[in-house]
Structure formats: C-alpha cells, structure tokens
Amino acid sequence: MSNFFFKVLRPGINSTFQDKGRYHMQHLGVTPGGCMDLDLFSIANALVKNSSNEGVLEFAYQGPLLKLINGKTKIAITGNVLFQIIKSNNETIKGECYRTYDMDKGDQIDILATKKSSYGYMALEGGFDIKPFCKSVSILSRAQIGPNEGKKLKIDNKINIKINRNNNKNYAIKISSKNESTIRVLKGSQFDYFSKKSQKDFFSKEYKISNLTDRMGMRLEGEVMENIVNTNIRSEGITKGAIQVPADGQPIILLTDYPTIGGYPKIANVTSVDYSLLIQKTPGEKISFKLIELHEAEQLYKEHLKSISKIIKEIREIN
C-alpha cells in the first residue's frame, strides 16, 4: 500500500465510492448499486486516463472537503459542480468541471455544491486505493457493503490513493448540458392494473420530485394513480428505473440502490437512455413521462452510447 492519502475535513451529504456496480448477486439480495450517473463516471475516468471501471468518488448536493496530506495527484470533476482548489500557499483556484487539475501535498479540494443537478464525480489518476467486495468498490450503505466498511465518507476518514501523479499533462473537454424534463418510459408489467383515466394522466400530467429521494428511490407527487385490480402483487425481482405505485397512488421510481424484490404494481419503466437525465433532477423539479416502444428505446440508447464515446474521443490536452 502507498502512503499517499487524503484526509476528509468535511464529508458532504452523501459521498461514496462507486464503480459500475456489483453483478450476479441479485438472487442473494444484493442490489447492483454503482454510479447513479454512469455517463459522468465514464467521462471522469477518461479525463484522468484511467481504465473505464476504476472506482470514483460520487457526491450529492454538497460534496466533501478533502486535504491531500501526502503525495501528488491529478483529479477531474464531472457534473455541474461548484468547486475550488485551495493550494497549500492559500491561493484559491476556481474549479472548472471536465478538466484535470494537479494537486500537491497540502492542497485541498472543496466541492461546494452540485448546481441544478444531484450527482457529481471525482476521479483520480490511477484511482483510489480501496478494497473491492465481490469485484466491485461500490458502497451499498444500506447493507454496509463495499470499501470504507460500506459507509458514506465521514469526517477524519483517510482516503488512500494508489499512485503518485506521473502524467505531467492536463486534459479538458467541452460539454453542453441538456435541460429536458420529459422522461421516456416503456409500459410496466402491471400497466393494465390502472384505470384508463390514470393511464392517460400518467402521460399528460406533470409530477413533482419530492424530498424523499435518495440513491434507492425517487418519490413523486402528482395525480393519484387509480389501481383497479390490486394494490399489491406477489413480490418479484426489480429492475432499475421501475416506476411502482403503492396503495396511496403516488409513483416511486426505483433507482440504482433498489431493493432486489418488490411487491407493488409497476406502471412504467424508465428507459436506459433517459436514466442519467432523470437522476440528475433535484427535489422540487417537475418531470413528465412519454411512452415509447422497446425498439425505439434500444435505438436511442445506442445513439446515446455513441455520443458518450464521441465526447471521450474529444478530450484534448491543455497547457
């Protein structure tokens, strides 16, 4: 183990290590987890020239304040994030997302807030020195699985880093952000449990994202969905983005840390192409749903992956 590390001076609201997630274990009750926004995760690693599944630090709303106690590193922040780097001589650099910065012993990174978005990412050249559990470094805090004893960052935690910086170049990329509020979905398994009026309402009315939103699920407030068959179903396996409607008629979208099985009827399922867009919405924002067909969802996702590859190819060296 290297002796290069950060010390956590402020943990932030929900700061965890994440990668693509932990698979082949859902039948044992272990949800895949992983980065909420896999697009930003890929771009963060690409900026610091890491392999595509290197673990990163994910933060939500208010991020951490970290001090590099020993070593030198290169970092990149992705998302729509307000941050600054405080050099050891107290000089402050206003941070720009989607570019790399060198950090030296004694420097601090202060991740102040995610702007008009929920999640942001910090990648390090070479990666964090954290122990995987079942091939993934994703922290599942509900079950206390993953590095850092499966817990969110806490004050005074020590974060080890794998290597000292050895690339003396820096990189950047321009990203234009979309502000779309329509989320494309597919019909859910129990779509026909809901009245004709509710089926229509679901695709024509707006829903407000409530404060009860976290990595596990997003609760919505809006038109009550009227269930005309049964408000419970036999518990069955869950997929990411399932929109379930409990007896109170208010939809809940199951997100990355979803429970592995669930017993509420599902009216719809968020498409893969719009998942990152959805999870970046913040409590209080309004969204609406648009029904599309499976083949369209598959085609749109292919195009989306191409656009992410294109972004990664456009990463350029800066001075």
Partner: peptide, 14 residues
Amino acid sequence: ILNYTPSYNKLIIN
C-alpha cells in the same frame, strides 16, 4: 447477462 432473480412465480433476467 447481469442478474437473474427468482421470486415465487417469476424469474427476472437483467
């Protein structure tokens, strides 16, 4: 294939 989750009367494949 990423996951295969049996329940009482269904198998869900992710």
